[in-house]
Structure formats: structure tokens, C-alpha cells
Simulated assay, not measured.
Amino acid sequence: MCSYEREVKRLERLADEVNSDELSQLTESDNESLADEDHNLVSDHELDTEQESFSDVEEQANLLRRSRYIKISTTTTETNTTEIMALLGLLYLAGSQHGGRKHIAEFYSDDGLGCEIFPAAMAQRRVKFLLRCLRFDDTNTREVRKSQDNLAAVREMMIKFNEQCKVHYSVGEYVTLDEMLLAFRGRCRFKMYIPNKPNKYGLKVFSMVDSRTFYTSHLEIYAGTQLEGPFKIDNSTAAVTERMCMHLSGSGRNVTMDRWFTGYKIASLLLREHRLTVVATIRANRRSSIVMPVLERKWLPRHV
């Protein structure tokens, strides 16, 4: 074989190697594009679900804007689902930074103490405007619904919120049940006054959360004494505790709860009917808390 033929063979082998490398790179790029398409399909599905959830909020906000703000400016233009989701994202971010007691202007401060995401996402005046217009129900039928339900303004939103909390995350084997008082001094039928709380006036909320990740599994707002109808429920300690644990029935989880929820009968009911164990403090002055009724009070330890 002459040198010319050897050189031709060498160039053919080199061309084959180059073609095989290009083919492998093309296959990898195709796989990446297919993965991106699959991801986009999932993202589009999630986006459609979120848009359906916030479409009513968007509609009510725009209706309120048309009725109150005749003059249209960059601050008072109509909103959309994307902007509503951005607003809720800013509120979540403010909560993660413990900004419940901060004024909104502090997040827009340019002295190094503010949060850069806030001015990048939305103007301060626009945030205030959207918060004034934000509604979670049909305001035209609210008065009719309030005749049967004290929680008519947020009832539908709370139902959807609890459903989505259960769909997107499964809590671990340890959960915590507690109550909290959200500071509020406005007009409300079921506003409560608890003197031993930091915020003495507010709305009482029962919450079931994951003990490790603090993810919320279920929320219930105390709506006071409801009128006769479909929304009248029992607000006794045993009823509230069983209602908050109902979605975990039969799962074998352990529930840590405050002494307000605890009683011997309640703990026995959760174990017998729902296969849930309880870790809690039992108050000795509650009749249902005496575990060993044959013993006299003086023989019971002080911490029982």
C-alpha cells in the first residue's frame, strides 16, 4: 500500500470518528430538549392549575378597581393572575423574613436594609393598591352568605388552601397541633381578646403542622358561634381536636399538642378510633384528665 492510500485510510477513519462524536452530541442534545419539553409540559400544567385557582381573585380585584378608581394610571391599571401570584410571593418572602411587624416601606428602603426583590418585582404603590383591592369571594353575594356563615369572606379560599396543602406535601410521622392569635383590630364578628398573648386582639387559628419542616397540613379559623345552618359546628375542645386530626386518621402518626387540646378521653379517642398517639401536657383540674380515677387527688404527682 502506497503512502497515498494510507493517508486516504487515515482520513476516512478520522471522518468516521468525527461523525460518531457529532452523532453522540446530537443524541445528548435531543435528550436534553426532550427533557426540557417534558419539564415545560409539567410547568404548563401547574401554571394552568394555578391560573384557575387565582382567576376568581383576579376578577374580583378588577371589579373593585373599576368601581372605586375611575382615573386609570400605572398604579391603578387592571391586574392579572401573574401579578397576583407575584404579590403573594412577596408576602411569603416578607413572612419568611419575619416582616409581620414591619412597614411595607422598609422592604423598599435603599439604605441597605431593604429587600432588593421587592422593588425589582413591583412598585411600592402598586403593592399597596393591590392589597386594597384583594378579595377572595364574590362581593355581590357576600351579605347573603354572611347570614349563614361568619367566615363567608374567606371560606372558599380556606377550603382550597387546605386541599392544596394536602396534595403537594405529606407530613412526616410527627405533627404538632396548636393555636395562634393573628393580630387584628378591625371589624369582625369573631375577633377575640386573649390577655396573655403578645397581641391581645386578633383572630384565633388552629393549625396542624409538620414537627420537623413546619409545613402546614391543615388550618381552621375560629369563627365563633355560627347561626343554624350548614356551617354551624361544635367548637368544644374534643370536637376541634378530632376535626383537626381527621385527615391523618389511621396513619399511625404522633401528635404533639398544647394542654388546651388535651384530655384523657380525647387521647383515648384518637388512639382507639384514629390510630394516632399523643404527646401532651394533661391539666389536673380537668375532669377528663384523670387517668387513674381510683387514686385520690393528694396521691397524684403535681405535674399530672
Score class of each variant (00 low, 15 high):
residue 41 L to P: 08
residue 44 D to T: 08
residue 44 D to W: 12
residue 45 H to A: 14
residue 45 H to R: 15
residue 45 H to I: 06
residue 45 H to V: 06
residue 46 E to G: 10
residue 46 E to Q: 14
residue 47 L to C: 12
residue 48 D to W: 10
residue 49 T to V: 13
residue 49 T to L: 12
residue 52 E to Q: 10
residue 52 E to T: 07
residue 54 F to E: 01
residue 54 F to D: 03
residue 54 F to K: 07
residue 54 F to V: 10
residue 56 D to S: 14
residue 56 D to R: 12
residue 56 D to L: 14
residue 57 V to G: 05
residue 58 E to D: 02
residue 58 E to W: 14
residue 59 E to T: 07
residue 59 E to R: 14
residue 60 Q to T: 04
residue 61 A to T: 15
residue 63 L to T: 02
residue 64 L to P: 09
residue 64 L to A: 12
residue 65 R to M: 13
residue 66 R to P: 03
residue 66 R to M: 05
residue 67 S to E: 04
residue 67 S to G: 01
residue 68 R to T: 11
residue 69 Y to N: 07
residue 69 Y to K: 11
residue 70 I to A: 06
residue 72 I to T: 09
residue 73 S to M: 01
residue 73 S to N: 08
residue 74 T to D: 13
residue 77 T to E: 12
residue 79 T to E: 01
residue 79 T to N: 02
residue 81 T to G: 13
residue 82 T to V: 10
residue 83 E to I: 09
residue 83 E to W: 05
residue 85 M to S: 13
residue 86 A to I: 04
residue 89 G to S: 08
residue 90 L to W: 11
residue 92 Y to L: 10
residue 93 L to D: 10
residue 93 L to R: 12
residue 95 G to N: 06
residue 95 G to E: 03
residue 96 S to G: 13
residue 96 S to K: 12
residue 96 S to D: 13
residue 97 Q to R: 15
residue 98 H to W: 11
residue 98 H to C: 04
residue 99 G to K: 03
residue 101 R to I: 10
residue 101 R to H: 12
residue 102 K to E: 00
residue 102 K to W: 09
residue 103 H to D: 02
residue 105 A to H: 11
residue 106 E to P: 05
residue 107 F to V: 00
residue 108 Y to Q: 00
residue 110 D to F: 00
residue 111 D to K: 02
residue 111 D to F: 01
residue 111 D to E: 02
residue 112 G to W: 02
residue 113 L to T: 15
residue 113 L to K: 09
residue 114 G to P: 01
residue 116 E to M: 13
residue 116 E to V: 03
residue 118 F to N: 00
residue 119 P to L: 14
residue 119 P to Y: 06
residue 120 A to P: 02
residue 121 A to S: 14
residue 121 A to N: 09
residue 122 M to S: 03
residue 123 A to D: 14
residue 125 R to L: 05
residue 128 K to T: 13
residue 129 F to Q: 05
residue 131 L to D: 01
residue 132 R to T: 10
residue 133 C to I: 06
residue 133 C to V: 08
residue 134 L to T: 04
residue 135 R to I: 06
residue 137 D to W: 08
residue 138 D to N: 07
residue 138 D to Y: 00
residue 139 T to Y: 00
residue 143 E to T: 11
residue 143 E to M: 11
residue 143 E to C: 10
residue 144 V to G: 15
residue 146 K to Y: 11
residue 146 K to P: 08
residue 148 Q to W: 09
residue 148 Q to V: 11
residue 148 Q to G: 09
residue 149 D to L: 02
residue 152 A to G: 03
residue 153 A to I: 05
residue 156 E to C: 07
residue 158 M to L: 09
residue 159 I to F: 11
residue 161 F to A: 06
residue 161 F to G: 05
residue 162 N to M: 03
residue 162 N to Y: 00
residue 163 E to F: 00
residue 164 Q to I: 04
residue 167 V to S: 10
residue 167 V to A: 08
